[in-house]
C-alpha cells in the first residue's frame, strides 16, 4: 500500500437531500497522474473538496500518505503537502504575478522567524523560473486581476508549484484555456509530474487532455463510481459513453 498516496474508502457526502457522493472508493498512486472524469454534477468537485477538507464527509475514510485526514481542517491538510487549485481560479488579484508567486512559498516549511525575513534572491529566481515555466514571464509585473482567465489559471498552477506540494489536485486545469495553448499545458503538467515529482490528481472535461496524460482514470456519475481503468479501458467502456451521452 506504500505507493498509494491518497486512499479514498467508501466516502459519502450529501447536501440536504442531494447525495453528491455515494460510497466512492479510489486510490491515487504516488508519483503518477490520475484522472477523474464524469458528467457535470457527478460529484467530482465535491470529492475534491472532501479530500482537501473543505467540508466534513458523512461516512468513509480518506487517507493521505497512510494517515487519516478526513477530520482535519483545510490548512493542516495543505501543510502536509496536499494542495488543490480551484475550478474558478483563485489568485490574489490586486497583486502582480511575482507577488502572487512569493506569497505561495511553502509556509509550512517556515518557522516564524523565517517568515519575518524578506524574500531572498533565490525566492525571486524560483518565482521567475516557474513563471517562465508556465509562460507568464512577460506578464509577471502586471496586476494579476487584469490577466485573462486562462492566464490566471496558469498563474494559479505556477503558484501551486511554488508551494512545493507532494500531491496536487487540479480542478479542470484546461477549462477556459485557449485550445492552442492546451498542448503546451499538457506538456507542462507532465513535466511537473516527472521533473518536480509531484503526484497529480486531475479533474478534466477535455477527454483529449485526460486520455493523453493520466495513467489511471476514474469516472463518476450521479455521485457513484462508474468505472475505473486505463485510458483505453475507459474510452471503450459502454457505461462511460452512456453516462456522457445521458443514457444513464
Amino acid at each position: 500500500m506504500s505507493d498509494i498516496i491518497i486512499n479514498v474508502q467508501n466516502v459519502s457526502k450529501s447536501f440536504g437531500g442531494v447525495q453528491a457522493n455515494t460510497n466512492v472508493t479510489m486510490q491515487v498512486e504516488t508519483g503518477g497522474i490520475t484522472g477523474l472524469i464524469g458528467p457535470n454534477g457527478s460529484g467530482k468537485t465535491t470529492l475534491f473538496n472532501s479530500i482537501v477538507g473543505y467540508h466534513p464527509i458523512d461516512g468513509g475514510s480518506i487517507q493521505f500518505e497512510g494517515q487519516e485526514i478526513s477530520k482535519l481542517p483545510v490548512q493542516q491538510i495543505a501543510r502536509r503537502g496536499l494542495l488543490r487549485t480551484f475550478q474558478q481560479t483563485r489568485i490574489y488579484g490586486a497583486m502582480n504575478g511575482i507577488e502572487n508567486m512569493l506569497i505561495s512559498l511553502p509556509h509550512r516549511k517556515m518557522k516564524i522567524w523565517d517568515a519575518l525575513k524578506t524574500y531572498t534572491r533565490e525566492d525571486y529566481e524560483r518565482a521567475d523560473h516557474l513563471l517562465e515555466f508556465v509562460g507568464l514571464y512577460e506578464k509577471r509585473m502586471l496586476k494579476s486581476g487584469d490577466l485573462s482567465f486562462g492566464q490566471q489559471k496558469l498563474l494559479e498552477f505556477a503558484m501551486a508549484l511554488m508551494n512545493e506540494p507532494t500531491c496536487l489536485l487540479l480542478d479542470e486545469p484546461t477549462a477556459g484555456i485557449n485550445p492552442t495553448l492546451i498542448n503546451g499545458l499538457i506538456d507542462r503538467l507532465k513535466r511537473a509530474n516527472t521533473e518536480f515529482g509531484i503526484t497529480l490528481f486531475v479533474i478534466e472535461h477535455n477527454m483529449r487532455v485526460i486520455m493523453n496524460m493520466a495513467e489511471t482514470i476514474y469516472c463518476l456519475a450521479h455521485g457513484e463510481l462508474l468505472a475505473q481503468g486505463t485510458p483505453d479501458e475507459i474510452q471503450n467502456d459502454q457505461r462511460v459513453i452512456d453516462a456522457y451521452l445521458g443514457a444513464h
Binding site: 490548512q75 495543505a78 501543510r79 483563485r90 490574489y92 507577488e99 506569497i103
Partner: peptide, 16 residues
Amino acid sequence: NAIRDDEEKADAMGIH
C-alpha cells in the same frame, strides 16, 4: 496581504 485578498485561498495554500 494574502489573508486580506483571499483568506480561503491562503488557507488552501497552507498559510498559518
